[in-house]
Design a protein around this nucleic acid. Structure first.
Lengths: 340, 340
DNA sequence: TCGTTTCCAGATAACGTTAAAATAAATTAT
DNA sequence: ATAATTTATTTTAACGTTATCTGGAAACGA
């Protein structure tokens, strides 16, 4: 099933001109007479001519599409970020091609291979929780392929990066718990190989240190899939509950960890904040409707998407290789509600 | 900034063969000797050759991309649907290009124009709440361009459609409220021009009728932007609260209407379900964590995305024009919780 | 031995577009 | 009047790929 659209050739044949004349007339070149231009333009409008973007892509060696790789589209943080990405991209005339990893390194690899085999001009990526080996990204990057990292960045690749101040976000959240009088604060973090997990744990530790509370290793739980699967979270919570002294508050370091932790609490009949306080990273827009309304660290996801896309398009459209890279760090926002 | 990838020509030059020989060797044609094939294949692997998808697109007149137009990516229903779309599309080797309308007809028009100017092979669309005029879609459809509607479908275009049984979903929800003993049940619906709004209101009316409750016109509130903006919802709620008898339950007919209605209730100090019961369409995955846990009509969004994509690719890949169109209706799922 | 088939490979054209080179016609300069 | 210049257009080539057509050599049959 196909449908044929008008081409320059159709116009040329109809008007008895050559294709290049038509092409130049359409682009309003000075070397085409006004009469011819008008003739061509009129006819083009009449038959509803639109240049074939694929032919242009082939000629110009650019597709005007950018790829986006995230863990899950159906995650408030990522969908908000994609919203921002789409807004800037459309503005600049770029298509947005979306892929998900579902936190699997293999899927990330395949997707990257697929996207990068020349149908996109650049890539926005927030790496999967399973990503340890970076060869696939390095190889692309070394060939000069434009890549911008957002949220879950990778330290040993020199390119633009956009993230929040993870350390500070975690620090603020933990300090808030300390100030509320909680004495035994645990943390649920994503996988240790992700820098955002390490930074958030570091912020947590710093807040404890400054408050002269000595952190215990057993109070820190890493989750391989960043909380995507509830049983992973349940396991961590079970381990925490067995500790003595028992934690009286938990700081959850990612969106899914936060909501799945709430689910586990609910299933176990643990009351927030009476039995256990909860503060976590989350970009859900329903936090104030939850029971209890959740104290969260919110990331400016939409803005992150916008900034990352701006940076990527700068790389894509730059004539000469870019050597100076930006590292943009946005502020998180602590929204205090009843859960703490 | 660009980077050069290997082409068939590079291989041909390096091995002293013609491009057509290389092309055929790579596609394992029988008219190329085993020795040559091996030579070519080996070299291609070595220099990491990948066929240029854009050149292929030009030749084959297909881009292996499909467009998706939805109101908002950052909406649980749509992001789940996109998840399903992406899963099937990737499986079949198609890119997914995403655009949002933010419920604006103008944006839908522009986006459609942009996408359809030949860079996509087909379109999945859930029309914006502002869509009344269908000329843009009809024009495309008449030219044979493959379109599949999902969720918010359009009745007077003959093509594949996937939706839920909106009538039944609304009927079930309303009947549930009736059975719980509520006497004055109001409804907040999306814009009247969308068939899903009309169907859901019809289901609501039928449930009332069967229960011998006489429906009142003033209990039915349509919202132009399907609840996207909270002030629209607030206005409707205010009007409902002024009615005598005052409604003791509300059925909300879309995701955003449901959550924004909760927000309005919370702001006004209206307790659910004591002051007012609430049942609504929602695909949020946090409903059981809300206060109170919400009784919802859930749509199989992921599945809808999958089915719609399957149908679209069938249209796209069909050799001959398709004349028989499917109309797939999925069941909704009423999840009863404390809000009713 | 000659003609036919089979095997393998190269040449050409095409998808839709545009940049660069070539040409033709008209105008200007000498 | 002729050369030089300008103007307006066409021709060619190219982006990367593949389908179709063409051709040469070896193998086979009569």
């Amino acid at each position: 099933m196909k449908f044929e659209a008008a081409t320059i050739k159709d116009i040329a044949n109809a008007l008895g001109l050559s294709t290049s004349t038509v092409s130049r007339a359409l682009r309003d070149s000075h070397e085409i007479s006004t009469a011819t231009k008008q003739l061509v333009l009129e006819y083009a409008t009449r038959i509803n001519y639109h240049p074939n973007p694929i032919a242009l892509s082939l000629k110009e060696k650019r597709s005007r599409s950018i790829g986006v790789i995230v863990a899950e589209i159906a995650n408030s943080f990522f969908s908000q970020a994609i919203n921002g990405i789409e807004s800037v991209a459309k503005d600049k005339g770029y298509n947005v091609i979306i892929s998900q990893t579902h936190e699997s390194f293999e899927k990330e690899l395949m997707t990257l291979q697929y996207l990068a085999s020349r149908s996109i001009d650049g890539l926005l990526i927030s790496v999967s929780s399973g990503t340890q080996n970076l060869e696939h990204l390095k190889a692309l990057h070394d060939r000069g392929f434009p890549i911008v990292f957002f949220d879950r960045i990778v330290e040993d690749l020199q390119t633009h990066k956009v993230m929040v101040d993870n350390f500070r976000g975690a620090y603020d959240a933990t300090l808030h718990l300390v100030n509320k009088g909680y004495k035994h604060i645990a943390v649920l973090a994503g996988p240790e190989n992700l820098s955002i997990s390490r930074e958030r744990v570091a912020g947590y530790l710093e807040a404890l240190a400054q408050s002269r509370m000595k952190p215990s290793k057993s109070m820190i739980k890493y989750s391989q899939f960043a909380g995507l699967y509830i049983n992973e979270v349940e396991q961590s919570v079970n381990q925490l509950l067995k500790l003595r002294p028992k934690p009286d508050a938990i700081f959850t370091a990612s969106d899914k960890l936060t909501t799945n932790c709430m689910r586990v609490f609910k299933a176990k009949g643990i009351k927030i904040p009476e039995d256990m306080a909860l503060v976590g990273f989350s970009n859900s827009d329903l936090i104030e409707l939850l029971h209890p309304p959740l104290t969260v660290v919110r990331q400016p996801a939409f803005e992150m998407g916008q900034i990352a896309t701006g940076m990527l398009l700068q790389l894509v459209e730059s004539k000469k290789p870019v050597r100076e890279f930006e590292r943009k760090i946005l502020a998180t926002n602590l929204i205090v509600q009843a859960s703490s």
